[in-house]
Amino acid sequence: MISEFQDLSDKIDRLAQLAQSLRSENYLLRQANALLSAENVDFKHRLIAAQQRVEAMLAQLEPPAPAEQDSTPDDSEAAR
């Protein structure tokens, strides 16, 4: 009977150690998640800024001149 209590006590100790280990791991994962979330927000801001710069550059470009149309049909129409 005493050995059964000792086995139960050992299992409880292992369970307590496992619970503590999982708490520590959870804490580290939460820290990593917070850092990655902050990095993600930073990347989103940088992406928006880059998109705005590209749009501003595109707005400064002159629209292309209309292409002159040849009186000869193109190859796709000639093949018909």
Rank of each mutant, 00 (worst) to 15 (best):
M1D: 15
M1R: 12
M1T: 15
I2A: 13
I2S: 10
I2Y: 05
S3K: 06
S3R: 03
E4Q: 06
E4M: 01
F5P: 09
F5K: 00
F5M: 09
Q6I: 03
Q6F: 07
D7P: 00
D7N: 04
D7G: 09
L8K: 13
L8Y: 11
S9A: 14
S9D: 10
K11V: 02
K11S: 11
I12L: 07
I12G: 11
D13Y: 14
D13F: 11
D13I: 08
R14I: 01
R14H: 09
R14G: 04
R14T: 06
A16H: 05
A16Q: 05
Q17M: 06
Q17R: 12
L18A: 08
L18V: 08
L18C: 06
L18F: 12
A19S: 01
A19R: 05
A19D: 12
Q20H: 15
Q20D: 14
Q20V: 01
S21I: 06
S21T: 14
S21P: 04
L22D: 11
R23T: 08
R23P: 04
R23K: 12
S24F: 11
S24H: 08
E25N: 02
E25G: 03
E25I: 04
N26G: 05
N26F: 05
L28D: 14
L28Q: 15
L28S: 12
L29A: 10
L29V: 09
L29R: 06
L29T: 02
R30W: 02
Q31E: 14
Q31W: 08
Q31S: 07
Q31H: 15
Q31T: 01
Q31D: 15
A32Y: 10
A34C: 01
A34G: 02
A34I: 05
L35T: 11
L35H: 14
L35A: 02
L35R: 14
L36F: 03
L36A: 08
L36P: 01
S37H: 06
S37Y: 01
S37A: 12
S37D: 15
A38L: 05
A38V: 05
A38G: 09
A38S: 09
E39Y: 06
N40F: 03
N40M: 11
D42Q: 15
D42P: 01
D42T: 12
D42A: 04
D42M: 11
